[in-house]
């Protein structure tokens, strides 16, 4: 069974009445299916125009739920999105980026979802729509645990909203894996730094993925960065204590101890990269 609604209302009705499985890019749905038969109907939401595309508004940027990673990577966006666009280019492969969607990445709620750290740093909000209405949740609340979200069965994620407060900040994304391309990260880091006229950091956001059930911001580090000059060497501000929110585990990719160690290095490098970008621009 396969449902391909042409409008959001139609899709929401179908979802509420059939218990269908939502299908968009298919890059998580089909691998999870393996060679078992599909028992629930698919509700294909890729024919809904209102779910696609990126809109820049004065107070926010709206990214439609089924916007693909390729579209994000190619989009003309302010520098605060550099981390997200870099992450887009690291999702799987070009083939995956051409199909995989931003909302799918969030709904799959993998600890290693490439899109999550940059969107956490952007303090993105997730818009959920059902027949009974719309609501928005901060991303950090939307993903409530290991592969778990707050999406109700009758809801479709329709968009991701990014407030404009930090979108002109410098941002960087680093992904560490055991190979180039098609790799699940061992650690990844998104960092954003905003500076005042004097070149001092007046806002910082850092998020780390693959080191806890859900990617985490590092608030103590963010606080410690504020007031420092945004200059090379900023990475040395990072201490092991700043990584306290992380709880890395051992798996086939790496040991937990290594993850903690590498996360500290990667966070420092991501901060340096933000500063480097800024320095390059000044020059």
């Amino acid at each position: 069974m396969y449902l391909r609604p042409r409008s959001l209302d139609e899709a929401l009705d179908a979802l509420a009445t059939t218990g269908a499985q939502i299908l968009a890019g298919g890059t998580d749905v089909f691998p999870a299916l393996g060679d078992r038969p599909q028992t629930r109907p698919f509700l294909d939401i890729t024919a809904l125009p209102e779910l696609r595309g990126i809109g820049l508004e004065p107070d926010h940027v709206r990214i439609g739920a089924t916007t693909t990673w390729t579209e994000i990577a190619r989009a003309d966006l302010p520098s605060g999105f550099d981390a997200l666009r870099a992450a887009a280019r690291e999702v799987g492969s070009l083939q995956i980026q051409n199909r995989g969607t931003i909302a799918g990445n969030l709904c799959n709620a993998s600890p290693a979802a490439d899109g999550v750290p940059p969107l956490l740093a952007l303090e993105a909000e997730v818009e959920l729509t059902s027949r009974t209405g719309r609501r928005r949740l901060p991303l950090r609340e939307f993903i409530s645990g290991y592969r778990r979200t707050e999406r109700r069965e009758d809801e479709i994620v329709t968009a991701v909203f990014v407030p404009r407060a930090m979108t002109d900040a410098r941002s960087a994304f680093l992904k560490l894996g055991a190979r180039r391309y098609l790799v699940i990260s061992i650690v990844m880091v998104a960092a954003m730094l905003r500076t005042d006229e004097a070149g001092r950091i007046d806002a910082a956001r850092v998020a780390v993925g693959s080191c806890s059930a859900v990617a985490q911001r590092l608030p103590a580090l963010e606080a410690a960065l504020v007031g420092r000059p945004a200059a090379p060497g900023i990475g040395s501000a990072v201490t092991a204590a700043h990584l306290a929110p992380l709880s890395p585990i051992d798996d086939v990719r790496a040991t937990g101890a290594y993850r903690a160690d590498a996360a500290q290095t990667l966070v420092a490098r991501a901060l340096e990269a933000c500063v480097h970008e800024r320095a390059k621009e000044a020059a």
Binding site: G26, T27, F30, F42, T46, T70, L94, R99
Partner: peptide, 21 residues
């Protein structure tokens, strides 16, 4: 990527696409 095909000129893994899409 062995199953790559072009859809409107872009490469996709055809194992991850429902035919109806």
């Amino acid at each position: 990527g062995a199953c790559s095909v072009l859809v409107d000129g872009e490469a996709v893994c055809s194992c991850l696409v429902a035919a109806g899409q």
